[in-house]
Design a binder for these strands. Structure first.
Length: 566
RNA sequence: UGUCCUGUGGUGUAAUUGGCAACACGUCUGACUCUGGAUCAGAAGAGUCCAGGUUCGAGCCCUGGCAGGACAACCA
């Protein structure tokens, strides 16, 4: 949480340059003191964490100034959009914790109005139907440093454009035969002002309007006007639309009959290390089976992050921490990881689980005995209470917690060494049992009955506390360990290397047989736990009655791992 | 040889009307601890892209450079 808290009740803590602009607009009494924003996704893919930044900003800004925020689907291209995406987007926004109430819109709600506006522009001689092929129009557009040239149809009579536009709408032409263009300035230094396309012909069924239309407005012709129709006061968007702003303003100037104008303000998108936010590339990963769907826990999609165990609070905190600016940068994944740990540390039920089991026989412990040991559910939150963990003669410990020939600074179990089994007993390793290959198959230990609960009455100290699970009283589970999807910080930063070449082959590691204490029996998908000393884990939807599946969200901070790597 | 935007520790941000650069993550110490977690204490690390100028004083103002990004889809 940031320090610069505000005086106003309920206001978000940190201000940014956009909030300053909004504040000034309010001071100047613009738009009758209204603040109205919108989040305008295209339903052509799943939302990712970059969108979360926009969502938090859009809804957050409205909330901060007592305004409203709409959800509007920019569904102007039926060939790429789908109801599946409309549904997932709504689910993800709600999950993040935001609510558009009754203000759900679609660009397609405004198709009639946009058509009427287009006709008006034709009538005023500000738009015309061009019938040149796409490549010719493209060539005539020039380059950023060279002006374009005018289409031979640019000055055709208004009536002719009107007639052709009506015929386009009536379906008399095939895809690509004609387009409607705004008549602005082919020599403009801004490419977007060189008679941009307003409408194109697409004979395709639209997920909402069905077959009513076969001409669809371009995003640039629809977006700004939709903001206008919805009464949006502040249109927040990412940097790449900065150069479109003059065009949006041009259209609105032709449309507006008062002082009201949506004000577009651009900010930089969120980038994270070791992943990428390109919808196109994410779609490619999904379609080529390089990940297991949009909600693969390695994906930066909100559905993937959710399945991985990242909480809404952690994502909102990340967005809060990185701030809103116009500078492009890349946020270290470690910031997100820190944010989840911070959240989960306070809320996650603790439990013991062994992912890489090594059997330990406690030779002086009675055969067949089951003792229930009392364990704390969350040391950060006493109200979460306590539970009992079954202890038996044979248990599993983590293979990494034993070394036959330990280096300095390795505090865990070793031959002859005594350690604590968490919430149970002190045990001392007496024997190392190996198979014919020299692999350690089990350990023999003795326990000190006086140390029950985890402390010795003689005040004897041990250097390490190990987690453990009874070899007989446990729940078997599959655990999926995840690592970064890519092994370079910027997988799409390489000009001459495809981003897929940077995929981390070890990003998913499946441990089919792990042992978890019985407490987790009956846990449902999305239930979260801390496996003590290992990390945070979440129940996956692949779990069945017979077999639980856990995903590792993140490891705990691990100083030993850091040290031993050196 | 255009237009627009951006340039502050490793990373992301902050710095009221110009006043000796702050916070978070990360890194490194140490304390404490029945999680090598958490917590607590502390450290290192930038003189603000460069060069001039205005000023008692500039990250903030002016001038000129340099660097990076965006824009040439009938995508959004």
């Amino acid at each position: 949480m940031a320090e610069n808290s505000e005086n106003k009740a309920g206001a978000p803590k940190v201000r940014n340059f956009i909030h300053e602009i909004v504040e000034n607009d309010l001071l100047e009494k613009k738009n009758d003191g209204r603040v109205h924003t919108r989040f305008p996704p295209e339903p052509n893919g799943y939302l990712h964490i970059g969108h979360a930044k926009a969502i938090c900003l859009d809804f957050g800004t409205a909330e901060k100034f007592g305004g409203k925020c709409n959800l509007r689907f920019d569904d102007t291209n039926p060939s790429k959009e789908d109801q599946e995406y409309v549904d997932s987007i709504q689910e993800d926004i709600k999950w993040l914790g935001f609510d558009w109430e009754d203000r759900l819109f679609y660009a397609s709600d405004f198709f009639d109005k946009l058509y009427a506006f287009a006709v008006k522009l034709i009538n005023e001689g500000k738009a015309y139907v061009d019938q040149q092929p796409a490549d010719v129009i493209s060539q005539q557009r020039g380059t950023p440093t060279r002006p374009g040239i005018e289409s031979p149809y640019r000055n055709r009579p208004v009536e002719e454009s009107l007639d052709l536009f009506a015929k386009m709408k009536a379906g008399e032409f095939p895809n690509g035969a004609m387009v409607l263009r705004a008549k602005i300035d082919m020599a403009s230094p801004n490419m977007h002002m060189r008679d941009p396309l307003m409408y194109r012909i697409i004979h395709a069924e639209h997920h909402r309007t069905g077959n009513k239309w076969c001409i669809y407005p371009m995003y640039d012709f629809a977006h700004g006007q939709c903001d206008f129709f919805e009464g949006i006061t502040h249109s927040l968007c990412t940097l790449e639309f900065e150069i479109h702003r003059p065009l949006y303003n041009w259209f609105i100037d032709q449309l507006a009959d008062s002082d009201y104008r949506p004000r577009q303000i651009e900010f930089s998108r969120l980038n994270l290390t070791y992943t990428m936010m390109s919808k196109r590339k994410l779609l490619q990963l999904v379609e080529e089976g390089l990940v297991n769907g949009w909600d693969d826990p390695r994906m930066p999609t909100l559905s993937g992050l959710r399945r991985r165990g990242f909480t809404p609070a952690s994502i909102r905190n990340l967005v809060e921490k990185v701030g809103i600016t116009k500078t492009e940068g890349t946020v270290d994944m470690a910031v997100l990881e820190h944010a989840v740990r911070e959240d989960l540390n306070k809320t996650a039920q603790r439990v013991m689980g062994v992912l890489n089991p090594l059997k330990v026989v406690i030779t002086n412990y009675p055969e067949g005995e089951v003792e229930m040991m009392e364990a704390v559910n969350n040391p950060e939150d006493e109200s979460m209470g306590k539970r009992e963990v079954p202890f038996t003669k044979e248990i599993f410990i983590e293979r990494d917690d034993f070394m036959e020939d330990p280096p300095r600074k390795f505090f865990r179990l070793a031959p002859g060494r005594e350690v604590r089994l968490r919430y149970a007993y002190f045990v001392t390793c007496t024997d190392v049992v190996k198979d014919e290959n020299g692999e350690i198959t089990e350990l023999h230990c003795t326990y000190d009955p006086a140390s029950r609960g985890g402390n010795s009455p003689d005040g004897r100290k041990v250097k390490a506390t190990l987690h453990w699970v009874s070899a007989t009283e446990n729940t078997k589970a599959e655990v999926r360990l995840y690592d970064r999807l890519f092994n370079v910080e910027d997988p799409s930063g390489d000009k001459d290397k495809d981003f897929r070449e940077h995929l981390n082959p070890d990003s998913l590691q499946v441990r089919p047989v792990c042992y978890i204490e019985p407490f987790v029996d009956g846990a449902q998908p999305l239930d979260q736990f801390q496996f003590e000393r290992l990390g945070y884990f979440i129940v996956d939807k692949d779990s069945t009655k017979g077999k639980m599946v856990f995903n590792r969200t993140v490891t705990l901070r691990d100083n030993w791992a850091k040290f031993s790597k050196k």
